[in-house]
Design a protein around this nucleic acid. Structure first.
Length: 468
RNA sequence: GGCGACAUGGCCAAGUGGUAAGGCACGGGUCUGCAACACCCUCAUCCCCGGUUCAAAUCCGGGUGUCGCCUCCA
């Protein structure tokens, strides 16, 4: 299994620190609003990484935090006149709901920043003791220059950063020893949530959270640390500085970063008005479609989002699900007999598609390629499985497809919904009408059902229906 | 100003030295009362210029273009 490591900028063979086990930390969202589709990309991508590893028999300890103390949360709370915790609790709940829709497995542990303050105080103190941090009137800063390897992840050096055009110094931070130093602890302002510490009543900086939570739930050295590419600098760079300075050990062995999701080739932003929440999408599509769409490109390539592309993904996914549904029907026929010569030959072909799937996933989780293998399996199934196929043959296809779709986190069946009696009656009436060649009545009924979002298909096995 | 990524058919997207996967859409056909579904067929020489090589979309150099990071951000 190969993973592209941002740290070395190469694909490396994945070797877990402890054989058979994976310690993985994925930076989670700040919960100040419904998550947007950009947040959804790392969730889907790294959930797929986890699923594949589990399929390969690895035990994955998957930790993903919720940042529940932050300026944005505080602002939102002020705006609504409620407490910060009310905001964060609300959006954590909503986020979990969206994750379920996208079929993202809950992490082994979802730590909350506000519940880990003690650990942060300890780490900050430790950094001060070791000379990597200093207290300046209640604000504690990390002494960036002291950590010699600073910049090793983002391939930046302090000179370049300071020589840059941008003004790094921010008003009110004159007490810093160096403009590149970053905050570990800051004093509270009026009305902000705070915790007492020996430096000031205040709250932690953003970066320290992840260092602490990763350490507590996974250990000082972890296998994989993942997140969006925008987190490389400064967030992950700072995490490395904190953790390695404090622990004296290498922090994460592999750093994985997903590329951004764009809207019409532009970065999604509220000001451009091209901002979609996962909830928005769920109103129009099953979130499985969103998941399928996200996996249709490699996670390290920028992905463009548009209504047309969602339609296209919906159609593609539909084809897969339709094939699964018909396999289910053939399976029900349960024809007990030996595999025919031809079936054996086709199963060989299936086997090589299985290999193609795995080979793609082994190569830095190339889901786009893996999906192409799934489509080829679908084609093979559609063209060779029929009424007289042996159940052994049908089972093999169905088992394999379910397995691979599960790795991708795609549910391989259509939600069966209870059809109400009126509709059933209409379908029967239409069948009668067709029999007596009263096609205009038949079409009328079909149109009526279509208006209700029900599509009819006349197959040799009888009438099938599905929701749009 | 510094650092970096990308450029493949109408759209999306794999492929990174051996002669272009897959999906969607379009068109033609089989099936069907019609439609839908399913199936079959058709559809590209890989941004431009130069170089290396028996051989390049794939490596090197130079252009052009798009995007990202350097600031809260998935």
């Amino acid at each position: 299994m190969k993973i592209y490591n941002t740290l070395t900028k190469t694909k490396e063979e994945f070797i877990p620190l402890e054989p058979g086990k994976v310690k993985m930390y994925v930076c989670g969202p700040t919960v100040y609003n419904l998550i947007h589709i950009g947040n959804a990309r790392p969730m889907i991508v790294f959930d797929t990484v986890r699923r594949y590893m589990e399929y390969k028999g690895l035990e994955v300890n998957y930790v993903s935090n919720f940042t529940d103390v932050d300026d944005k949360i505080i602002n939102k709370a002020i705006e609504e006149g409620v407490s910060s915790s009310e905001i964060s609790e609300r959006y954590i709940k909503e986020c979990l709901k969206d994750m379920e829709g996208m079929n993202v497995k809950p992490a082994t542990k979802h730590p909350l920043a506000t519940e880990e303050i003690d650990g942060m105080l300890d780490m900050i103190q430790d950094l001060i003791d070791k000379g990597f941090a200093y207290d300046a009137n209640g604000t504690v800063y990390f002494r960036t220059k002291k950590f010699e390897e600073y910049g090793k992840l983002s391939k930046k050096n302090l000179e370049d950063l300071q020589a840059g055009h941008r003004e790094i110094k921010v008003v009110g931070e004159e007490s810093k020893e160096d403009p590149m130093d970053f905050v570990l602890w800051k004093p509270k302002k009026d009305g902000e949530p705070s915790w007492s510490s020996k430096w000031s009543d205040g709250r932690p900086g953003w970066h320290i959270e992840c260092s602490v939570m990763a350490k507590k739930y996974l250990g000082e050295e972890i296998d994989i640390h993942a997140g969006g590419e925008d987190l490389v600098f400064p967030h992950h760079e700072n995490e490395i500085a904190q953790s390695e300075a404090c622990n004296g050990e290498k922090f994460a062995k592999y750093w994985m970063h997903n590329a951004f999701l764009n809207i019409d080739n532009k970065k999604m932003s509220k000001s451009l008005g091209n901002f979609f929440t996962v909830r928005d999408i769920s109103e129009k599509y099953d979130l499985q479609v969103l998941r399928f769409f996200m996996l249709s490109a490699h996670y390290r390539s920028p992905l463009n989002f548009s209504a047309d592309l969602m339609e296209s993904s919906k159609n593609g996914l539909d084809r897969i699900v339709t094939a699964m549904e018909s396999l289910k029907e053939y399976k029900a026929k349960n024809i007990e007999k030996e595999l025919s010569q031809e079936e054996k030959k086709n199963l060989e072909a299936l086997k090589s598609l299985e290999e193609k799937f795995e080979k793609s996933m082994e190569d830095d989780f190339n889901t786009a390629d893996a999906i192409s293998a799934v489509f080829e399996m679908v084609k093979l199934s559609n063209t060779t499985v029929n009424d007289s196929s042996s159940s052994l043959y049908v089972d093999e296809f169905s088992k394999k497809l379910v397995t691979f779709l599960d790795i991708l986190g795609i549910k391989a069946y259509r939600e069966t919904e209870i059809i109400d009696e009126d509709i059933e009656k209409l379908i029967e009436e239409r069948q009668e009408a067709r029999k007596s060649k009263n096609f205009s009545r038949a079409d009328e009924i079909r149109d009526t059902l279509l208006e209700k979002g029900i599509v009819l298909e006349d197959t040799r096995e009888g009438v099938k229906w599905k929701k749009m």
